[in-house]
């Protein structure tokens, strides 16, 4: 179980988290749903070790073994699609390059630079780049923005096959339906409204 206990985070007078606590099962796909700006991204960034909460503790996973997909694509304008993956793929998984390209349906664009890709293709590249990292917890911030439904289904099926805990934030109802559980949030400051477990 990933346990966040009494987390507080504020920027100046703007409080994002105020004594926020939550337990998330460390298996399957957990979707975080809530209005924009409620604090979902901040929670994911804290879990990834990119933000330090002013108070509170997090237990149940190794922060060094998390992989985060950022809300922005954050692609290198001068690196090709293929290079984005080879840059992060560990040597023992180098053979998975073609599989990841095929998963993102980017085989034809392997030698292209990001500027030649559509918004959806860039998002898919950012998604598979995160999966190329060796991690024991994947944190995905709005991973399917601009991605069409059939591809979302394929990518969600792949996430289930990973058999590793995935926490993602999303607004898409289709993604919420495919997740193992949905945590409905509100804020700021962030609070849990409802936890829905799905079969």
């Amino acid at each position: 179980m990933i346990s966040c206990s009494q987390l507080s985070l504020s920027y100046g007078e703007h409080t994002i988290l105020n004594q926020f606590s939550i337990d998330i099962p460390s298996e399957g796909i957990t979707a975080l749903s809530g209005p924009s700006g409620c604090g979902k991204t901040s929670l994911l960034r804290i879990l990834a070790g990119l933000e330090q909460p002013q108070t509170g503790t997090i237990t149940g996973f190794d922060p060094q073994k998390t992989a985060i997909q950022f809300q922005e694509n954050r692609l290198f304008p001068w690196r090709t699609v293929e290079e984005h993956l080879t840059d992060v793929l560990p040597p023992h998984r180098a053979s998975q390059l073609s599989h990841l390209l095929s998963l993102a349906q980017l085989e034809q664009a392997a030698k292209q630079l990001p500027k030649a890709l559509s918004g959806g293709m860039q998002r898919r590249l950012s998604f598979v780049r995160t999966l190329a990292l060796d991690a024991s917890l994947y944190l995905l911030d709005e991973p399917f923005t601009g991605v069409d439904l059939p591809r979302i289904t394929i990518l969600m099926d792949f996430l289930k096959l990973l058999q590793l805990p995935v926490i993602l934030s999303t607004h898409e109802t289709e993604v919420l339906q495919l997740a193992d559980r949905v945590i409905v949030l509100d804020g700021p400051p962030l609070r849990v409204i409802q936890v829905i477990s799905q079969p």
Binding site: A48, G49, L50, A67, I68, F70, E72, R74, F76, R79, D87, V88, L133
Partner: peptide
């Protein structure tokens, strides 16, 4: 700065950060 944060989050080595970023 966003790409710089990514290189830290993705555990790029200093040489990788220099070469790629």
């Amino acid at each position: 700065p966003q790409l710089l944060e990514l290189t830290r989050a993705y555990h790029f080595t200093p040489i990788q950060t220099i070469k790629i970023l």
